[in-house]
Design a protein around this nucleic acid. Structure first.
Lengths: 144, 144
DNA sequence: CTATTCCCCACTGGAGAACCGGAGTATACT
DNA sequence: AGTATACTCCGGTTCTCCAGTGGGGAATAG
Protein backbone atom coordinates (compact mmCIF):
# COMPACT_ATOMS: atom_id res chain seq x y z
CA UNK A 1 0.00 0.00 0.00
CA UNK A 2 2.71 2.36 -0.98
CA UNK A 3 1.53 5.37 -2.92
CA UNK A 4 4.76 5.98 -4.75
CA UNK A 5 5.45 8.26 -7.66
CA UNK A 6 4.44 5.41 -9.93
CA UNK A 7 0.93 5.17 -8.56
CA UNK A 8 0.51 8.92 -8.61
CA UNK A 9 1.48 9.06 -12.28
CA UNK A 10 -0.81 6.19 -13.11
CA UNK A 11 -3.78 7.75 -11.35
CA UNK A 12 -3.09 11.06 -13.03
CA UNK A 13 -3.03 9.42 -16.43
CA UNK A 14 -6.25 7.54 -15.76
CA UNK A 15 -7.83 10.71 -14.46
CA UNK A 16 -6.86 12.54 -17.61
CA UNK A 17 -8.32 9.73 -19.69
CA UNK A 18 -11.48 9.83 -17.61
CA UNK A 19 -11.93 13.50 -18.36
CA UNK A 20 -11.89 12.60 -22.06
CA UNK A 21 -13.98 9.48 -21.69
CA UNK A 22 -17.09 10.98 -23.32
CA UNK A 23 -15.33 12.22 -26.44
CA UNK A 24 -14.15 8.77 -27.40
CA UNK A 25 -10.99 9.93 -29.13
CA UNK A 26 -7.71 8.52 -27.83
CA UNK A 27 -5.20 10.55 -25.84
CA UNK A 28 -1.53 10.21 -26.65
CA UNK A 29 1.25 9.64 -24.17
CA UNK A 30 2.81 12.97 -25.01
CA UNK A 31 -0.38 14.87 -24.35
CA UNK A 32 -0.90 13.30 -20.95
CA UNK A 33 2.75 13.66 -20.06
CA UNK A 34 3.00 17.35 -20.87
CA UNK A 35 -0.40 18.06 -19.35
CA UNK A 36 0.54 16.51 -16.01
CA UNK A 37 4.28 17.11 -16.17
CA UNK A 38 5.30 13.48 -16.21
CA UNK A 39 8.38 12.13 -18.07
CA UNK A 40 6.83 10.60 -21.17
CA UNK A 41 9.16 7.64 -21.56
CA UNK A 42 8.35 6.65 -18.02
CA UNK A 43 4.63 7.11 -18.41
CA UNK A 44 4.82 4.78 -21.38
CA UNK A 45 5.84 1.91 -19.12
CA UNK A 46 3.08 2.61 -16.66
CA UNK A 47 0.46 2.72 -19.38
CA UNK A 48 1.75 -0.60 -20.67
CA UNK A 49 1.24 -2.05 -17.21
CA UNK A 50 -2.24 -0.56 -17.03
CA UNK A 51 -3.02 -2.05 -20.42
CA UNK A 52 -1.93 -5.48 -19.29
CA UNK A 53 -4.09 -4.96 -16.23
CA UNK A 54 -7.09 -4.23 -18.41
CA UNK A 55 -7.57 -0.64 -17.35
CA UNK A 56 -6.81 1.01 -20.67
CA UNK A 57 -6.98 0.12 -24.34
CA UNK A 58 -4.32 1.25 -26.77
CA UNK A 59 -4.54 2.18 -30.41
CA UNK A 60 -1.38 2.06 -32.46
CA UNK A 61 -0.28 4.06 -35.41
CA UNK A 62 -0.91 7.65 -36.40
CA UNK A 63 -3.80 9.25 -34.52
CA UNK A 64 -3.43 6.45 -32.00
CA UNK A 65 -3.26 6.71 -28.25
CA UNK A 66 -4.93 5.42 -25.13
CA UNK A 67 -8.53 5.02 -24.06
CA UNK A 68 -10.14 3.92 -20.83
CA UNK A 69 -11.15 0.27 -21.10
CA UNK A 70 -13.89 0.68 -18.51
CA UNK A 71 -16.22 3.45 -17.46
CA UNK A 72 -14.70 5.71 -14.78
CA UNK A 73 -17.33 4.73 -12.21
CA UNK A 74 -16.33 1.09 -12.54
CA UNK A 75 -12.65 1.58 -11.84
CA UNK A 76 -11.74 1.14 -8.16
CA UNK A 77 -8.61 3.00 -7.11
CA UNK A 78 -7.39 0.05 -5.06
CA UNK A 79 -7.32 -2.13 -8.18
CA UNK A 80 -5.24 0.46 -9.98
CA UNK A 81 -2.72 0.71 -7.17
CA UNK A 82 -2.48 -3.05 -6.89
CA UNK A 83 -1.92 -3.33 -10.62
CA UNK A 84 0.75 -0.70 -10.78
CA UNK A 85 2.49 -1.44 -7.52
CA UNK A 86 2.46 -5.13 -8.25
CA UNK A 87 0.79 -7.16 -5.54
CA UNK A 88 3.93 -8.80 -4.23
CA UNK A 89 3.22 -11.84 -2.17
CA UNK A 90 5.68 -11.62 0.66
CA UNK A 91 6.51 -15.10 1.85
CA UNK A 92 5.71 -14.67 5.50
CA UNK A 93 7.37 -17.97 6.15
CA UNK A 94 5.26 -20.67 7.63
CA UNK A 95 3.09 -19.24 10.34
CA UNK A 96 4.11 -22.01 12.66
CA UNK A 97 7.71 -20.85 12.86
CA UNK A 98 6.79 -17.31 13.87
CA UNK A 99 7.03 -16.33 17.51
CA UNK A 100 3.89 -15.20 19.26
CA UNK A 101 5.24 -11.67 19.34
CA UNK A 102 5.80 -11.67 15.60
CA UNK A 103 2.28 -12.88 14.97
CA UNK A 104 0.92 -10.06 17.10
CA UNK A 105 2.98 -7.41 15.35
CA UNK A 106 1.93 -8.77 11.97
CA UNK A 107 -1.64 -8.61 13.18
CA UNK A 108 -1.38 -4.88 13.72
CA UNK A 109 0.16 -4.50 10.32
CA UNK A 110 -2.79 -6.35 8.83
CA UNK A 111 -5.11 -3.87 10.51
CA UNK A 112 -3.25 -0.98 8.94
CA UNK A 113 -3.33 -2.64 5.54
CA UNK A 114 -7.04 -3.22 5.83
CA UNK A 115 -7.69 0.39 6.78
CA UNK A 116 -5.63 1.68 3.88
CA UNK A 117 -7.28 -0.67 1.41
CA UNK A 118 -10.64 0.38 2.76
CA UNK A 119 -10.05 3.99 1.79
CA UNK A 120 -8.73 3.09 -1.64
CA UNK A 121 -11.55 0.69 -2.39
CA UNK A 122 -14.13 3.32 -1.47
CA UNK A 123 -13.17 5.57 -4.39
CA UNK A 124 -13.51 5.27 -8.14
CA UNK A 125 -12.10 7.33 -10.96
CA UNK A 126 -15.48 8.99 -11.20
CA UNK A 127 -15.01 10.41 -7.70
CA UNK A 128 -11.73 11.96 -8.73
CA UNK A 129 -13.32 13.46 -11.82
CA UNK A 130 -16.07 15.03 -9.73
CA UNK A 131 -13.58 16.39 -7.25
CA UNK A 132 -11.67 17.94 -10.12
CA UNK A 133 -14.79 19.54 -11.49
CA UNK A 134 -15.69 20.86 -8.05
CA UNK A 135 -12.24 22.35 -7.65
CA UNK A 136 -12.46 23.97 -11.05
CA UNK A 137 -15.75 25.52 -10.05
CA UNK A 138 -14.16 27.00 -6.95
CA UNK A 139 -11.20 28.35 -8.90
CA UNK A 140 -13.57 29.91 -11.37
CA UNK A 141 -15.53 31.61 -8.59
CA UNK A 142 -12.38 33.08 -7.14
CA UNK A 143 -11.33 34.23 -10.59
CA UNK A 144 -14.56 36.18 -11.04
CA UNK B 1 3.57 4.51 6.82
CA UNK B 2 5.67 1.70 5.57
CA UNK B 3 5.90 -1.20 7.97
CA UNK B 4 9.24 -2.45 6.79
CA UNK B 5 11.48 -4.99 8.38
CA UNK B 6 12.99 -2.21 10.44
CA UNK B 7 9.73 -1.28 12.11
CA UNK B 8 8.87 -4.89 12.74
CA UNK B 9 12.20 -5.49 14.45
CA UNK B 10 11.80 -2.34 16.52
CA UNK B 11 8.31 -3.25 17.65
CA UNK B 12 9.45 -6.76 18.50
CA UNK B 13 12.29 -5.43 20.60
CA UNK B 14 10.02 -2.99 22.42
CA UNK B 15 7.50 -5.74 22.94
CA UNK B 16 10.16 -7.95 24.45
CA UNK B 17 11.23 -5.11 26.71
CA UNK B 18 7.62 -4.52 27.70
CA UNK B 19 7.27 -8.12 28.81
CA UNK B 20 10.19 -7.54 31.17
CA UNK B 21 9.09 -4.09 32.25
CA UNK B 22 8.00 -5.17 35.75
CA UNK B 23 11.23 -6.93 36.61
CA UNK B 24 13.27 -3.79 36.10
CA UNK B 25 16.41 -5.59 35.01
CA UNK B 26 17.83 -4.66 31.61
CA UNK B 27 17.67 -6.90 28.57
CA UNK B 28 20.71 -7.25 26.38
CA UNK B 29 20.77 -6.99 22.63
CA UNK B 30 21.83 -10.59 22.26
CA UNK B 31 18.93 -11.85 24.33
CA UNK B 32 16.35 -9.94 22.32
CA UNK B 33 18.02 -10.85 19.05
CA UNK B 34 18.14 -14.59 19.68
CA UNK B 35 14.67 -14.59 21.23
CA UNK B 36 13.10 -12.95 18.19
CA UNK B 37 15.53 -14.17 15.55
CA UNK B 38 16.81 -10.75 14.54
CA UNK B 39 20.41 -10.08 13.37
CA UNK B 40 21.95 -8.59 16.48
CA UNK B 41 24.29 -6.11 14.82
CA UNK B 42 21.28 -4.70 12.98
CA UNK B 43 19.10 -4.58 16.06
CA UNK B 44 21.83 -2.58 17.73
CA UNK B 45 21.33 0.25 15.25
CA UNK B 46 17.59 0.23 15.72
CA UNK B 47 17.88 0.33 19.49
CA UNK B 48 20.25 3.29 19.16
CA UNK B 49 17.60 5.09 17.15
CA UNK B 50 14.97 4.22 19.71
CA UNK B 51 17.24 5.53 22.45
CA UNK B 52 17.67 8.83 20.65
CA UNK B 53 13.91 8.93 20.24
CA UNK B 54 13.47 8.52 23.98
CA UNK B 55 11.75 5.16 23.87
CA UNK B 56 14.43 3.13 25.63
CA UNK B 57 17.20 3.75 28.12
CA UNK B 58 20.54 2.02 27.84
CA UNK B 59 22.89 0.86 30.54
CA UNK B 60 26.47 0.25 29.60
CA UNK B 61 29.00 -2.17 30.89
CA UNK B 62 28.67 -5.58 32.44
CA UNK B 63 25.09 -6.49 33.35
CA UNK B 64 24.03 -3.67 31.10
CA UNK B 65 21.34 -3.67 28.47
CA UNK B 66 18.18 -1.86 27.52
CA UNK B 67 15.12 -0.78 29.44
CA UNK B 68 11.88 0.82 28.41
CA UNK B 69 12.04 4.55 29.09
CA UNK B 70 8.28 4.80 29.45
CA UNK B 71 5.52 2.56 30.69
CA UNK B 72 4.15 0.29 27.94
CA UNK B 73 0.71 1.89 28.11
CA UNK B 74 2.21 5.28 27.30
CA UNK B 75 3.98 4.23 24.14
CA UNK B 76 1.90 4.80 21.00
CA UNK B 77 2.84 2.55 18.11
CA UNK B 78 2.60 5.40 15.63
CA UNK B 79 5.32 7.28 17.48
CA UNK B 80 7.59 4.26 17.33
CA UNK B 81 7.09 3.80 13.61
CA UNK B 82 7.65 7.50 12.97
CA UNK B 83 10.85 7.40 15.01
CA UNK B 84 12.25 4.34 13.32
CA UNK B 85 11.06 5.04 9.82
CA UNK B 86 12.16 8.64 10.04
CA UNK B 87 9.37 11.11 9.42
CA UNK B 88 10.58 12.33 6.08
CA UNK B 89 9.16 15.64 5.06
CA UNK B 90 8.47 15.26 1.40
CA UNK B 91 8.69 18.64 -0.29
CA UNK B 92 5.37 18.59 -2.09
CA UNK B 93 6.51 21.58 -4.03
CA UNK B 94 4.46 24.69 -3.72
CA UNK B 95 0.82 23.79 -3.84
CA UNK B 96 0.22 26.52 -6.38
CA UNK B 97 2.26 24.81 -9.06
CA UNK B 98 0.35 21.55 -8.79
CA UNK B 99 -2.36 20.80 -11.31
CA UNK B 100 -5.88 20.34 -10.06
CA UNK B 101 -5.64 16.65 -10.85
CA UNK B 102 -2.50 16.30 -8.76
CA UNK B 103 -4.12 18.04 -5.83
CA UNK B 104 -7.05 15.64 -6.01
CA UNK B 105 -4.84 12.57 -6.16
CA UNK B 106 -2.77 13.84 -3.26
CA UNK B 107 -6.01 14.35 -1.37
CA UNK B 108 -6.84 10.68 -1.64
CA UNK B 109 -3.36 9.82 -0.51
CA UNK B 110 -3.84 12.00 2.54
CA UNK B 111 -6.99 10.05 3.35
CA UNK B 112 -5.10 6.79 3.21
CA UNK B 113 -2.32 8.19 5.38
CA UNK B 114 -4.82 9.38 7.94
CA UNK B 115 -6.54 6.01 8.06
CA UNK B 116 -3.24 4.19 8.52
CA UNK B 117 -2.07 6.59 11.21
CA UNK B 118 -5.41 6.21 12.93
CA UNK B 119 -4.89 2.50 13.38
CA UNK B 120 -1.33 2.88 14.60
CA UNK B 121 -2.20 5.66 17.02
CA UNK B 122 -4.97 3.57 18.52
CA UNK B 123 -2.57 0.98 19.88
CA UNK B 124 0.06 1.05 22.60
CA UNK B 125 2.71 -1.45 23.56
CA UNK B 126 0.42 -2.55 26.37
CA UNK B 127 -2.11 -3.74 23.79
CA UNK B 128 0.51 -5.90 22.15
CA UNK B 129 1.53 -7.35 25.48
CA UNK B 130 -2.05 -8.27 26.25
CA UNK B 131 -2.52 -9.84 22.84
CA UNK B 132 0.60 -11.90 23.44
CA UNK B 133 -0.67 -13.08 26.78
CA UNK B 134 -4.03 -13.94 25.27
CA UNK B 135 -2.35 -15.93 22.53
CA UNK B 136 -0.25 -17.77 25.05
CA UNK B 137 -3.39 -18.68 26.94
CA UNK B 138 -4.90 -20.10 23.80
CA UNK B 139 -1.78 -22.09 22.98
CA UNK B 140 -1.74 -23.46 26.50
CA UNK B 141 -5.35 -24.55 26.22
CA UNK B 142 -4.65 -26.39 23.01
CA UNK B 143 -1.60 -27.98 24.61
CA UNK B 144 -3.70 -29.40 27.42
C1' DC C 1 5.13 4.88 -48.68
C1' DT C 2 5.83 7.59 -44.85
C1' DA C 3 5.02 9.85 -40.68
C1' DT C 4 3.15 8.89 -36.45
C1' DT C 5 2.45 6.41 -32.39
C1' DC C 6 2.54 2.52 -29.56
C1' DC C 7 5.52 -1.81 -28.06
C1' DC C 8 9.35 -4.17 -25.98
C1' DC C 9 13.83 -4.81 -23.98
C1' DA C 10 17.66 -3.17 -21.73
C1' DC C 11 20.41 0.08 -19.10
C1' DT C 12 21.95 3.67 -15.63
C1' DG C 13 22.10 6.34 -11.37
C1' DG C 14 20.77 7.02 -6.94
C1' DA C 15 18.53 5.90 -2.54
C1' DG C 16 17.51 3.08 0.99
C1' DA C 17 17.25 -1.54 3.37
C1' DA C 18 19.66 -5.05 5.62
C1' DC C 19 23.72 -6.34 7.45
C1' DC C 20 28.82 -6.84 8.98
C1' DG C 21 33.24 -5.25 11.41
C1' DG C 22 36.21 -2.77 14.27
C1' DA C 23 37.78 0.56 17.50
C1' DG C 24 36.33 3.02 21.48
C1' DT C 25 33.99 3.68 26.09
C1' DA C 26 31.38 2.96 30.30
C1' DT C 27 30.32 -0.26 34.01
C1' DA C 28 30.49 -4.21 37.36
C1' DC C 29 32.99 -7.44 39.73
C1' DT C 30 37.07 -9.10 41.88
C1' DA D 1 43.55 -1.35 39.65
C1' DG D 2 42.47 -4.68 36.21
C1' DT D 3 39.64 -7.37 33.35
C1' DA D 4 35.63 -8.96 31.16
C1' DT D 5 31.28 -7.42 29.68
C1' DA D 6 28.24 -4.81 26.88
C1' DC D 7 26.84 -0.68 24.78
C1' DT D 8 28.40 3.33 21.19
C1' DC D 9 29.93 5.24 17.13
C1' DC D 10 31.97 5.04 12.77
C1' DG D 11 32.25 3.11 8.56
C1' DG D 12 31.65 -0.23 4.63
C1' DT D 13 29.13 -3.83 1.71
C1' DT D 14 25.56 -5.97 -0.84
C1' DC D 15 21.18 -5.97 -2.82
C1' DT D 16 16.92 -4.35 -4.45
C1' DC D 17 13.85 -1.11 -6.27
C1' DC D 18 12.45 3.37 -8.05
C1' DA D 19 12.81 6.81 -11.45
C1' DG D 20 14.18 7.95 -15.69
C1' DT D 21 16.56 7.22 -20.42
C1' DG D 22 17.53 4.98 -24.91
C1' DG D 23 17.09 2.31 -29.14
C1' DG D 24 15.06 -0.59 -32.33
C1' DG D 25 10.66 -2.75 -33.97
C1' DA D 26 5.65 -3.09 -35.27
C1' DA D 27 1.15 -1.28 -36.46
C1' DT D 28 -1.80 2.17 -38.54
C1' DA D 29 -3.74 6.58 -40.87
C1' DG D 30 -3.40 9.36 -44.68
Amino acid sequence: MELSCKSEYALLALLELSLNYDKGDPLQIRQIATQQDIPDRYLEQLLATLRRGGFVKSQRGAKGGYLLAQAPWNVILLDVVNCIEGLEKKDNGSDAVLTTERQVVRGVWQEVQTAARGVLSAHTLQDLVEQCNAKHQVDLMYYI
